[in-house]
Design a protein around this nucleic acid. Structure first.
Lengths: 200, 200
DNA sequence: GAATTTCCTCAACGAAAGTAGCATTTCCAA
DNA sequence: TTGGAAATGCTACTTTCGTTGAGGAAATTC
């Protein structure tokens, strides 16, 4: 879902994104209020949110959306990069922050990353936050394994999907368990849903 | 959490419920608005909701609460028993409906049932709805097993908690899998969360 | 540029998980 | 009273999990 008050920006983005096989624009909002409403209506996988909006701004809209759905994945798409703005965006629960000067490729990869629950941030900010991380981080591979686990896939099946040996998958799973502090795949599934890594 | 606009009713109920070991009243609201606010604040396991309230009524309050948390467990506690009222209450997502003329024991068991996600309804209504059930129903025992599975308990542990043989637990689990149409405990956990049987 | 850390990879082994057949008991509804 | 659903438990068996030791590639740090 695109949120931007400028029609040209929205339609340009939409056209550009629709070229991608794996991306579909299912809603466009021109204001914060409309964004919240349309989010509840359409439940998009990713919200690309501008910050300068008429009425309630992008931060407030993000906050409202997150209140409705803790698992919502909002990528802030802002003109300027201001540290305090990023700070606030992350505090209210946005997953990532991208400036509008980003290249098409950067935008695409940011959207794809956000879709699977990864955080996307400018280099300098990401580095600064790295030290403050609370607890161990789940790697990309582990994330992939997790969603397959929640789908009831067996280790062998997961291995086939990922093109690995079954034992490799087991290793990933063991690591996930340690990071989550859980005993088995059932509990890991619950935890993954809790953390928003797997959508309900 | 208790929601009722009459102070005497609230304090009477609270005192009565506090006598129970396993029940604690952590919030009381005198209006629908207050109910929604306090729910978000305290996240009670069960909301005991009167329907006649100043401002927004109990149905609307229930609806708003459910919008914020799909897993919220609301037990309507109404003076009258009107079919259309029950209908509406269930439509907005209330788990159960109990009339105020219910005995203390009925109230207690209704609260405990609601707490584990079971529906509580007047006999005649329950019967009428039974035919409309979509798909197989999870039994009480299976529900208990499910929450333990989601907590990462092994079959042996679950057996100990329930006071059964491990094989019995396995039997229950196999039945759950069939009813859910899933392969393993991880997928069953995801499904249980989806259905609101297990809280996130 | 050496040392360290992170991520991914794989194999072997013991412990659970999951299935199936069979049987008993209780309770509720037709 | 009879049929059915729910819960219980046993035996027996196959499959899958999950742990652990070990190694390699790449990025970071010092």
């Amino acid at each position: 879902m695109l949120v931007d008050d400028h029609f040209v920006v929205r339609s340009g983005l939409a056209a550009s994104l629709e070229l991608e096989e794996d991306i579909e624009v299912i809603a466009e909002a021109a204001s914060g209020e409309e964004a919240v409403f349309l989010f509840l209506e359409k439940r998009p996988d990713v919200v690309l949110m501008d910050l300068q909006l008429p009425g309630i701004n992008g931060i407030e809209a993000t906050e409202k959306i997150l209140l409705q759905d803790r698992g919502a994945r909002v990528l802030i798409f802002s003109t300027f990069v201001r540290d305090d703005e990023i700070q606030t965006a992350l505090e209210v629960g946005a997953l990532g922050y991208l400036q509008k000067s980003a290249s098409r490729e950067e935008l695409l990869s940011a959207i794809r990353a956000t879709a699977i629950g990864e955080t996307v941030l400018p280099e300098n900010i990401a580095k600064r936050l790295k030290g403050l991380q609370s607890g161990p981080t789940i790697t990309v591979r582990e994330r992939e394994v997790l969603v397959l686990i929640a789908q009831g896939k067996a280790n062998k099946e997961i291995a086939d999907v990922l093109g690995n040996a079954e034992d490799t998958v087991k290793r990933h799973i063991s690591n996930i368990f340690k990071k989550f502090g859980v005993n088995d795949r059932a509990q890991a599934t619950a935890e993954a849903i809790r953390r928003g890594i797997v959508k309900v």
